[in-house]
């Protein structure tokens, strides 16, 4: 349990998807103009990450890795399909995003209306694929750790986009030099926020 809490805190603050790895920047910058939409996209990302990363972990473990197919037959021990991992991961993400969209539409129209336009965007959100690739690189021991990891990464991403949106709502009233207005000042803002988040480095419970 302690292990999971540590992993969660670590992925939210220390290895934050935005401030440490800069993943999912496109939608991060595009959809952070108001807090309300930022919350919508943040929740959607958490949702999709928690589903896709553990699924990808299982695929990696029982299908793609060298020797992963031994559970089918011992003769397949030498098969190494890891060169297919990018394509499998992205296919899983795209398929699950599609599936989630359909399920949400059927069972919770109000949630669908809130998330609606953001869901398709998530398929090409680098944070989701990045999460899957980091999962592969970090070699987790079991599927529960990847659940915690993906939940933490998603929450970290959501916190980042919501706080940036809050700042951007305020900065609209400031007198920013005209050429820096909008995108320019946002970049610098994110840079400063990332510097602040570096203070969490080495942080452990």
């Amino acid at each position: 349990m302690e292990n999971h809490i540590n992993l969660f805190v670590d992925t939210v603050f220390v290895h934050n998807m935005i401030f440490a790895y800069f993943l999912g920047m496109c939608s991060f910058l595009a959809v952070s103009k108001t807090v309300k939409t930022a919350v919508g996209l943040g929740v959607a990302v958490v949702f999709v990450m928690v589903i896709t990363i553990p699924v990808n972990y299982l695929l990696e473990k029982y299908l793609l890795k060298e020797g992963a197919l031994t559970w089918l037959s011992p003769g397949l021990a030498g098969v190494d399909l890891s060169f297919l991992s990018f394509i499998i991961f992205i296919a899983v993400i795209a398929a699950i995003v599609q599936l989630v969209e359909m399920v949400v539409e059927r069972f919770s129209p109000s949630l669908y209306n809130a998330l609606g336009i953001f869901l398709p965007l998530i398929a090409v959100n680098c944070a989701v694929l990045g999460g899957a690739l980091f999962m592969q690189q970090r070699e987790f021991a079991n599927v529960w750790e990847t659940v915690t990891f993906s939940f933490g990464s998603g929450v970290g991403w959501a916190i980042a986009i919501i706080s940036l949106a809050a700042i951007r709502e305020k900065i609209r009233y400031s007198n920013v030099p005209a050429p820096l207005r909008g995108l320019g000042i946002t970049f610098i803002l994110v840079g400063l926020m990332a510097f602040a988040f570096m203070g969490f480095m080495g942080f452990k419970l």
Binding site: A20, P179, L180, G184, T186, I188, G191, A194
Partner: peptide
């Protein structure tokens, strides 16, 4: 040392945008 830190990349791009738009 701050230049090697990842956040500096963002700030540099911000400055490039500033110059380009001026």
């Amino acid at each position: 040392g701050a230049m090697i830190m990842p956040p500096m990349a963002l700030i540099l791009i911000g400055v490039i945008i500033w110059i380009q738009r001026s």
